[in-house]
Nucleic acid binder design. Structure first.
Lengths: 202, 202
DNA sequence: CTTCTAAACGGACTCTACCCCGTTTATATT
DNA sequence: AATATAAACGGGGTAGAGTCCGTTTAGAAG
Protein backbone atom coordinates (compact mmCIF):
# COMPACT_ATOMS: atom_id res chain seq x y z
CA UNK A 1 0.00 0.00 0.00
CA UNK A 2 2.52 2.63 -1.11
CA UNK A 3 0.73 5.82 -0.34
CA UNK A 4 3.51 7.95 1.11
CA UNK A 5 5.82 8.59 -1.79
CA UNK A 6 4.45 9.95 -5.05
CA UNK A 7 5.39 6.77 -6.85
CA UNK A 8 8.83 6.35 -8.35
CA UNK A 9 9.84 7.93 -11.66
CA UNK A 10 8.68 5.88 -14.58
CA UNK A 11 11.35 4.14 -16.64
CA UNK A 12 10.65 6.00 -19.87
CA UNK A 13 10.56 9.28 -18.01
CA UNK A 14 13.96 8.65 -16.54
CA UNK A 15 15.42 7.56 -19.84
CA UNK A 16 14.18 10.69 -21.52
CA UNK A 17 15.36 12.94 -18.74
CA UNK A 18 18.87 11.59 -19.00
CA UNK A 19 18.79 11.74 -22.75
CA UNK A 20 17.71 15.37 -22.69
CA UNK A 21 20.47 16.31 -20.31
CA UNK A 22 23.03 14.57 -22.47
CA UNK A 23 21.84 16.28 -25.61
CA UNK A 24 21.71 19.61 -23.80
CA UNK A 25 25.32 19.19 -22.80
CA UNK A 26 26.26 18.49 -26.38
CA UNK A 27 24.47 21.54 -27.68
CA UNK A 28 25.99 23.62 -24.93
CA UNK A 29 29.46 22.56 -25.93
CA UNK A 30 28.77 23.28 -29.57
CA UNK A 31 27.11 26.64 -29.45
CA UNK A 32 26.85 27.93 -25.90
CA UNK A 33 23.74 28.49 -23.84
CA UNK A 34 22.17 30.60 -26.53
CA UNK A 35 22.21 27.64 -28.85
CA UNK A 36 20.09 25.56 -26.54
CA UNK A 37 16.54 26.29 -27.57
CA UNK A 38 13.67 24.18 -26.40
CA UNK A 39 12.59 23.31 -29.91
CA UNK A 40 16.02 22.32 -31.05
CA UNK A 41 16.64 20.33 -27.92
CA UNK A 42 13.41 18.43 -28.30
CA UNK A 43 13.94 17.69 -31.93
CA UNK A 44 17.53 16.62 -31.54
CA UNK A 45 16.58 14.33 -28.71
CA UNK A 46 13.82 12.90 -30.83
CA UNK A 47 11.14 13.97 -28.38
CA UNK A 48 8.21 16.33 -28.28
CA UNK A 49 8.49 19.79 -26.92
CA UNK A 50 5.86 19.12 -24.31
CA UNK A 51 8.07 16.43 -22.88
CA UNK A 52 10.95 18.79 -22.41
CA UNK A 53 8.78 21.21 -20.50
CA UNK A 54 7.17 18.61 -18.28
CA UNK A 55 10.60 17.36 -17.38
CA UNK A 56 12.26 20.66 -16.60
CA UNK A 57 9.46 23.12 -16.23
CA UNK A 58 11.33 25.93 -17.85
CA UNK A 59 14.38 26.63 -19.92
CA UNK A 60 16.27 27.72 -16.85
CA UNK A 61 15.35 24.39 -15.30
CA UNK A 62 17.54 22.57 -17.76
CA UNK A 63 20.56 24.60 -16.83
CA UNK A 64 19.81 24.18 -13.18
CA UNK A 65 19.77 20.45 -13.66
CA UNK A 66 23.09 20.53 -15.49
CA UNK A 67 24.58 22.61 -12.75
CA UNK A 68 23.38 20.27 -10.08
CA UNK A 69 25.06 17.34 -11.71
CA UNK A 70 28.33 19.22 -11.55
CA UNK A 71 27.70 20.46 -8.08
CA UNK A 72 26.97 17.08 -6.58
CA UNK A 73 30.52 16.03 -7.13
CA UNK A 74 32.03 18.87 -5.28
CA UNK A 75 29.44 18.77 -2.57
CA UNK A 76 30.88 15.47 -1.52
CA UNK A 77 34.25 17.09 -1.08
CA UNK A 78 32.65 19.66 1.15
CA UNK A 79 30.81 17.16 3.28
CA UNK A 80 33.40 14.43 3.56
CA UNK A 81 36.61 15.50 1.88
CA UNK A 82 39.89 16.56 3.43
CA UNK A 83 40.26 19.84 5.33
CA UNK A 84 40.16 22.74 5.03
CA UNK A 85 37.26 22.27 2.63
CA UNK A 86 35.89 19.24 4.41
CA UNK A 87 35.37 18.74 8.12
CA UNK A 88 38.37 19.00 10.37
CA UNK A 89 39.34 22.63 10.03
CA UNK A 90 37.89 25.56 11.93
CA UNK A 91 34.76 27.36 10.67
CA UNK A 92 36.59 30.42 9.44
CA UNK A 93 39.07 28.37 7.52
CA UNK A 94 36.33 26.27 6.02
CA UNK A 95 34.34 29.32 5.00
CA UNK A 96 37.35 30.70 3.19
CA UNK A 97 38.05 27.41 1.50
CA UNK A 98 34.46 26.95 0.49
CA UNK A 99 34.36 30.44 -0.99
CA UNK A 100 37.45 29.84 -3.04
CA UNK A 101 36.22 26.59 -4.48
CA UNK A 102 32.76 27.92 -5.05
CA UNK A 103 34.02 30.96 -6.92
CA UNK A 104 36.17 28.79 -9.12
CA UNK A 105 33.19 26.58 -9.78
CA UNK A 106 30.99 29.49 -10.74
CA UNK A 107 33.60 30.94 -13.03
CA UNK A 108 33.99 27.65 -14.78
CA UNK A 109 30.27 27.43 -15.28
CA UNK A 110 29.38 31.05 -15.50
CA UNK A 111 27.45 30.73 -18.73
CA UNK A 112 25.34 27.93 -17.42
CA UNK A 113 24.84 29.61 -14.09
CA UNK A 114 23.60 32.76 -15.73
CA UNK A 115 21.32 30.83 -18.01
CA UNK A 116 19.97 29.04 -14.98
CA UNK A 117 18.75 32.31 -13.52
CA UNK A 118 17.53 33.99 -16.62
CA UNK A 119 13.85 34.63 -16.70
CA UNK A 120 13.65 32.73 -13.47
CA UNK A 121 14.81 35.08 -10.76
CA UNK A 122 13.42 34.45 -7.36
CA UNK A 123 13.65 30.72 -7.55
CA UNK A 124 17.14 30.11 -6.21
CA UNK A 125 16.92 26.40 -6.84
CA UNK A 126 18.87 23.72 -5.09
CA UNK A 127 22.01 25.20 -6.53
CA UNK A 128 22.11 28.28 -4.38
CA UNK A 129 20.58 26.48 -1.45
CA UNK A 130 23.67 24.40 -1.25
CA UNK A 131 25.77 27.41 -0.41
CA UNK A 132 23.12 28.64 1.95
CA UNK A 133 22.93 25.43 3.90
CA UNK A 134 26.65 25.19 4.20
CA UNK A 135 27.14 28.76 5.35
CA UNK A 136 24.40 28.37 7.90
CA UNK A 137 26.06 25.34 9.32
CA UNK A 138 29.47 26.91 9.55
CA UNK A 139 28.12 30.05 11.11
CA UNK A 140 26.32 28.00 13.71
CA UNK A 141 29.55 26.23 14.58
CA UNK A 142 31.50 29.43 14.62
CA UNK A 143 30.47 30.58 18.04
CA UNK A 144 30.09 34.10 16.77
CA UNK A 145 27.38 35.86 18.69
CA UNK A 146 25.32 36.58 15.66
CA UNK A 147 21.94 38.06 16.29
CA UNK A 148 20.24 36.51 13.28
CA UNK A 149 22.41 33.76 11.77
CA UNK A 150 19.90 32.92 9.11
CA UNK A 151 19.92 36.40 7.65
CA UNK A 152 23.66 36.68 7.87
CA UNK A 153 23.98 33.43 5.97
CA UNK A 154 21.74 34.82 3.27
CA UNK A 155 23.81 37.94 3.01
CA UNK A 156 27.07 36.09 2.85
CA UNK A 157 25.71 33.77 0.22
CA UNK A 158 24.74 36.79 -1.83
CA UNK A 159 28.14 38.36 -1.26
CA UNK A 160 29.76 35.19 -2.51
CA UNK A 161 27.62 34.44 -5.53
CA UNK A 162 26.13 37.76 -6.45
CA UNK A 163 29.25 39.42 -7.79
CA UNK A 164 29.93 36.58 -10.14
CA UNK A 165 26.43 36.44 -11.44
CA UNK A 166 25.92 40.17 -11.75
CA UNK A 167 29.16 41.98 -12.30
CA UNK A 168 31.97 39.88 -13.55
CA UNK A 169 29.93 38.57 -16.39
CA UNK A 170 29.21 41.95 -17.81
CA UNK A 171 32.92 42.58 -18.19
CA UNK A 172 33.41 39.21 -19.77
CA UNK A 173 33.70 40.67 -23.22
CA UNK A 174 37.35 41.20 -22.44
CA UNK A 175 37.97 37.51 -22.00
CA UNK A 176 40.81 36.54 -19.71
CA UNK A 177 39.41 38.97 -17.19
CA UNK A 178 37.25 36.40 -15.51
CA UNK A 179 40.24 34.51 -14.29
CA UNK A 180 41.71 37.52 -12.61
CA UNK A 181 38.42 38.80 -11.29
CA UNK A 182 37.93 35.44 -9.65
CA UNK A 183 41.20 35.68 -7.81
CA UNK A 184 40.42 39.14 -6.59
CA UNK A 185 36.99 38.14 -5.42
CA UNK A 186 38.34 35.13 -3.65
CA UNK A 187 40.91 37.24 -1.83
CA UNK A 188 38.27 39.77 -0.93
CA UNK A 189 36.06 37.00 0.35
CA UNK A 190 38.82 35.75 2.55
CA UNK A 191 39.38 39.25 3.83
CA UNK A 192 35.70 39.64 4.59
CA UNK A 193 35.42 36.38 6.46
CA UNK A 194 38.52 36.99 8.48
CA UNK A 195 37.38 40.40 9.51
CA UNK A 196 34.07 38.99 10.52
CA UNK A 197 35.71 36.46 12.79
CA UNK A 198 38.32 38.80 14.09
CA UNK A 199 35.60 41.13 15.26
CA UNK A 200 34.56 38.61 17.83
CA UNK A 201 37.31 38.87 20.38
CA UNK A 202 35.29 36.98 22.91
CA UNK B 1 31.30 73.11 -34.45
CA UNK B 2 29.77 70.74 -31.91
CA UNK B 3 31.79 67.62 -32.38
CA UNK B 4 32.29 66.45 -28.82
CA UNK B 5 28.84 65.58 -27.61
CA UNK B 6 26.60 63.30 -29.66
CA UNK B 7 24.14 66.08 -30.28
CA UNK B 8 21.32 66.71 -27.82
CA UNK B 9 18.17 64.61 -27.70
CA UNK B 10 15.71 65.64 -30.32
CA UNK B 11 12.54 67.31 -29.11
CA UNK B 12 10.15 64.68 -30.41
CA UNK B 13 12.32 61.95 -28.98
CA UNK B 14 12.19 63.49 -25.56
CA UNK B 15 8.47 64.02 -25.69
CA UNK B 16 7.91 60.41 -26.62
CA UNK B 17 10.30 59.11 -24.01
CA UNK B 18 8.45 60.93 -21.26
CA UNK B 19 5.11 59.89 -22.63
CA UNK B 20 6.17 56.26 -22.69
CA UNK B 21 7.36 56.38 -19.12
CA UNK B 22 4.12 57.96 -18.01
CA UNK B 23 2.03 55.37 -19.79
CA UNK B 24 4.22 52.59 -18.43
CA UNK B 25 3.61 53.83 -14.92
CA UNK B 26 -0.11 53.80 -15.54
CA UNK B 27 -0.08 50.27 -16.85
CA UNK B 28 2.12 49.18 -14.00
CA UNK B 29 -0.36 50.54 -11.49
CA UNK B 30 -3.24 48.87 -13.23
CA UNK B 31 -1.93 45.42 -13.87
CA UNK B 32 1.58 44.98 -12.53
CA UNK B 33 4.78 44.42 -14.48
CA UNK B 34 3.29 41.49 -16.32
CA UNK B 35 0.71 43.76 -17.84
CA UNK B 36 3.31 45.98 -19.44
CA UNK B 37 3.93 44.43 -22.83
CA UNK B 38 5.80 46.27 -25.50
CA UNK B 39 2.94 46.10 -27.96
CA UNK B 40 0.38 47.33 -25.49
CA UNK B 41 2.64 50.09 -24.29
CA UNK B 42 3.31 51.29 -27.80
CA UNK B 43 -0.30 51.23 -28.82
CA UNK B 44 -1.55 52.93 -25.70
CA UNK B 45 1.04 55.64 -26.12
CA UNK B 46 -0.01 56.03 -29.72
CA UNK B 47 3.46 55.13 -30.99
CA UNK B 48 5.07 52.40 -32.98
CA UNK B 49 6.68 49.43 -31.39
CA UNK B 50 9.98 50.25 -32.98
CA UNK B 51 10.01 53.55 -31.18
CA UNK B 52 9.67 51.91 -27.83
CA UNK B 53 12.63 49.70 -28.50
CA UNK B 54 14.85 52.44 -29.82
CA UNK B 55 14.09 54.46 -26.73
CA UNK B 56 14.68 51.76 -24.13
CA UNK B 57 16.54 49.02 -25.91
CA UNK B 58 14.76 46.24 -24.14
CA UNK B 59 11.78 45.58 -21.97
CA UNK B 60 13.96 45.59 -18.90
CA UNK B 61 15.21 49.00 -19.98
CA UNK B 62 11.82 50.51 -19.32
CA UNK B 63 11.77 49.28 -15.77
CA UNK B 64 15.30 50.46 -15.25
CA UNK B 65 14.27 53.90 -16.38
CA UNK B 66 11.31 53.92 -14.02
CA UNK B 67 13.51 52.84 -11.18
CA UNK B 68 16.04 55.52 -11.90
CA UNK B 69 13.42 58.20 -11.70
CA UNK B 70 12.53 57.00 -8.23
CA UNK B 71 16.11 56.58 -7.24
CA UNK B 72 17.20 60.06 -8.22
CA UNK B 73 15.05 61.54 -5.52
CA UNK B 74 16.57 59.53 -2.77
CA UNK B 75 20.05 59.88 -4.13
CA UNK B 76 19.83 63.54 -3.30
CA UNK B 77 19.10 62.69 0.29
CA UNK B 78 22.20 60.54 0.33
CA UNK B 79 24.44 63.15 -1.16
CA UNK B 80 23.15 66.25 0.54
CA UNK B 81 20.48 65.34 3.06
CA UNK B 82 20.71 65.31 6.85
CA UNK B 83 22.80 62.72 8.71
CA UNK B 84 23.08 59.88 9.27
CA UNK B 85 22.05 59.22 5.69
CA UNK B 86 23.68 62.31 4.33
CA UNK B 87 27.13 63.66 5.08
CA UNK B 88 27.98 64.51 8.64
CA UNK B 89 27.89 61.13 10.30
CA UNK B 90 30.67 58.55 10.42
CA UNK B 91 31.12 56.02 7.62
CA UNK B 92 29.78 53.07 9.62
CA UNK B 93 26.71 54.98 10.61
CA UNK B 94 26.14 56.13 7.09
CA UNK B 95 26.54 52.62 5.71
CA UNK B 96 23.93 51.34 8.09
CA UNK B 97 21.58 54.16 7.28
CA UNK B 98 22.08 53.73 3.57
CA UNK B 99 21.37 50.03 3.82
CA UNK B 100 18.16 50.57 5.69
CA UNK B 101 16.82 53.09 3.26
CA UNK B 102 17.95 51.11 0.29
CA UNK B 103 16.29 47.95 1.52
CA UNK B 104 13.07 49.81 2.11
CA UNK B 105 13.32 51.24 -1.37
CA UNK B 106 13.85 47.87 -2.96
CA UNK B 107 10.97 46.32 -1.08
CA UNK B 108 8.69 49.10 -2.17
CA UNK B 109 9.72 48.58 -5.75
CA UNK B 110 10.48 44.92 -5.75
CA UNK B 111 8.28 44.11 -8.72
CA UNK B 112 9.85 46.76 -10.84
CA UNK B 113 13.34 45.89 -9.70
CA UNK B 114 12.85 42.27 -10.66
CA UNK B 115 11.40 43.19 -13.99
CA UNK B 116 14.39 45.43 -14.56
CA UNK B 117 16.72 42.48 -14.32
CA UNK B 118 14.72 39.88 -16.10
CA UNK B 119 16.26 38.65 -19.26
CA UNK B 120 18.94 41.23 -18.78
CA UNK B 121 21.33 39.90 -16.19
CA UNK B 122 24.86 41.11 -16.40
CA UNK B 123 23.97 44.66 -17.11
CA UNK B 124 23.61 46.10 -13.61
CA UNK B 125 22.56 49.47 -14.94
CA UNK B 126 22.91 52.79 -13.25
CA UNK B 127 20.60 51.55 -10.57
CA UNK B 128 23.01 49.16 -8.94
CA UNK B 129 25.95 51.35 -9.73
CA UNK B 130 24.55 53.91 -7.39
CA UNK B 131 24.93 51.61 -4.45
CA UNK B 132 28.33 50.60 -5.63
CA UNK B 133 29.62 54.13 -5.91
CA UNK B 134 28.33 55.05 -2.54
CA UNK B 135 29.75 52.03 -0.77
CA UNK B 136 33.09 52.58 -2.41
CA UNK B 137 33.19 56.12 -1.16
CA UNK B 138 32.24 55.28 2.39
CA UNK B 139 34.73 52.44 2.54
CA UNK B 140 37.44 54.74 1.33
CA UNK B 141 36.61 57.20 4.09
CA UNK B 142 36.39 54.50 6.67
CA UNK B 143 40.08 54.11 7.27
CA UNK B 144 39.67 50.35 7.37
CA UNK B 145 42.80 48.71 6.13
CA UNK B 146 41.05 46.91 3.36
CA UNK B 147 43.27 45.09 0.94
CA UNK B 148 40.98 45.51 -2.07
CA UNK B 149 38.30 48.11 -1.36
CA UNK B 150 36.80 47.80 -4.81
CA UNK B 151 36.06 44.12 -4.43
CA UNK B 152 34.75 44.56 -0.94
CA UNK B 153 32.39 47.22 -2.18
CA UNK B 154 31.12 44.84 -4.81
CA UNK B 155 30.56 42.14 -2.26
CA UNK B 156 28.77 44.41 0.13
CA UNK B 157 26.59 45.72 -2.64
CA UNK B 158 25.65 42.17 -3.47
CA UNK B 159 25.02 41.38 0.18
CA UNK B 160 22.71 44.35 0.37
CA UNK B 161 20.75 43.94 -2.82
CA UNK B 162 21.06 40.28 -3.64
CA UNK B 163 18.91 38.87 -0.89
CA UNK B 164 16.03 41.07 -1.86
CA UNK B 165 16.23 40.25 -5.48
CA UNK B 166 16.80 36.56 -5.06
CA UNK B 167 15.17 35.34 -1.90
CA UNK B 168 12.51 37.58 -0.56
CA UNK B 169 10.69 37.62 -3.82
CA UNK B 170 10.40 33.90 -4.06
CA UNK B 171 8.68 33.80 -0.69
CA UNK B 172 6.43 36.62 -1.68
CA UNK B 173 3.57 34.28 -2.33
CA UNK B 174 2.93 34.48 1.39
CA UNK B 175 2.23 38.16 1.19
CA UNK B 176 2.93 40.26 4.26
CA UNK B 177 6.25 38.50 4.62
CA UNK B 178 8.18 41.09 2.67
CA UNK B 179 7.69 43.71 5.31
CA UNK B 180 9.11 41.52 8.01
CA UNK B 181 11.90 40.10 5.88
CA UNK B 182 12.96 43.65 5.19
CA UNK B 183 13.32 44.43 8.84
CA UNK B 184 15.34 41.30 9.47
CA UNK B 185 17.62 42.00 6.55
CA UNK B 186 18.14 45.56 7.64
CA UNK B 187 19.07 44.43 11.13
CA UNK B 188 21.40 41.81 9.75
CA UNK B 189 22.99 44.39 7.52
CA UNK B 190 23.62 46.62 10.48
CA UNK B 191 25.13 43.70 12.34
CA UNK B 192 27.39 42.91 9.42
CA UNK B 193 28.63 46.45 9.00
CA UNK B 194 29.27 46.93 12.68
CA UNK B 195 31.26 43.73 12.90
CA UNK B 196 33.28 44.80 9.94
CA UNK B 197 34.19 48.05 11.57
CA UNK B 198 34.68 46.62 14.99
CA UNK B 199 37.27 44.26 13.57
CA UNK B 200 39.55 47.14 12.90
CA UNK B 201 40.73 48.16 16.33
CA UNK B 202 43.42 50.35 14.89
C1' DC C 1 -2.84 -12.47 -20.20
C1' DT C 2 -6.25 -8.65 -19.63
C1' DT C 3 -7.61 -4.53 -17.60
C1' DC C 4 -7.10 -0.14 -15.73
C1' DT C 5 -5.22 4.32 -14.62
C1' DA C 6 -1.97 7.59 -13.67
C1' DA C 7 1.72 9.33 -15.95
C1' DA C 8 4.10 10.48 -20.06
C1' DC C 9 4.03 12.04 -24.75
C1' DG C 10 3.73 15.18 -28.88
C1' DG C 11 3.09 18.93 -31.51
C1' DA C 12 -0.03 22.56 -32.86
C1' DC C 13 -1.03 27.03 -30.87
C1' DT C 14 -0.44 31.42 -28.48
C1' DC C 15 1.86 35.21 -26.82
C1' DT C 16 5.76 38.44 -26.71
C1' DA C 17 10.25 40.31 -27.04
C1' DC C 18 13.07 41.93 -30.39
C1' DC C 19 14.72 42.90 -35.40
C1' DC C 20 14.61 45.29 -39.88
C1' DC C 21 14.28 48.68 -43.02
C1' DG C 22 11.65 51.77 -45.87
C1' DT C 23 9.49 56.28 -44.71
C1' DT C 24 9.05 60.62 -42.29
C1' DT C 25 10.71 64.65 -39.67
C1' DA C 26 13.48 67.86 -36.65
C1' DT C 27 17.00 70.84 -36.96
C1' DA C 28 21.39 72.77 -38.52
C1' DT C 29 23.24 75.15 -42.48
C1' DT C 30 23.30 78.31 -46.39
C1' DA D 1 13.02 79.79 -47.32
C1' DA D 2 15.36 75.83 -49.30
C1' DT D 3 18.34 71.89 -48.55
C1' DA D 4 20.64 68.28 -46.46
C1' DT D 5 21.12 64.68 -43.14
C1' DA D 6 21.14 62.37 -39.05
C1' DA D 7 17.78 60.82 -36.18
C1' DA D 8 13.23 59.16 -35.22
C1' DC D 9 9.23 56.60 -36.56
C1' DG D 10 6.11 52.55 -37.69
C1' DG D 11 4.60 48.19 -37.93
C1' DG D 12 5.11 43.77 -40.28
C1' DG D 13 8.11 39.70 -39.58
C1' DT D 14 10.81 36.24 -36.89
C1' DA D 15 11.94 33.24 -33.26
C1' DG D 16 11.56 31.05 -29.19
C1' DA D 17 9.24 30.15 -24.50
C1' DG D 18 5.52 28.15 -22.47
C1' DT D 19 0.48 26.12 -22.72
C1' DC D 20 -3.16 22.79 -23.91
C1' DC D 21 -5.26 18.76 -24.57
C1' DG D 22 -6.10 14.62 -27.10
C1' DT D 23 -3.39 10.24 -27.58
C1' DT D 24 -0.27 6.64 -26.07
C1' DT D 25 1.98 3.68 -22.71
C1' DA D 26 4.25 1.79 -18.42
C1' DG D 27 3.45 -1.08 -15.10
C1' DA D 28 0.35 -2.42 -11.14
C1' DA D 29 -3.52 -5.37 -10.04
C1' DG D 30 -6.35 -9.31 -10.77
Amino acid sequence: MPLGRPRAERADAKRNRLRLLAVAREMLAESGPGGVTMDALAERAGLGKGTVFRRFGTRAGIFKALLEEEARRFQELVLAGPPPLGPGAGPAERLVAYGRVRIAFLIDNIDVARAAMERDLGRPAVEVDMTLVHLRMLLAQSGLGVRDPESLAVQLAAALEGPLLLYVTSARAVGTDAEEAGVRLADAWQDLVERLFRSDSK
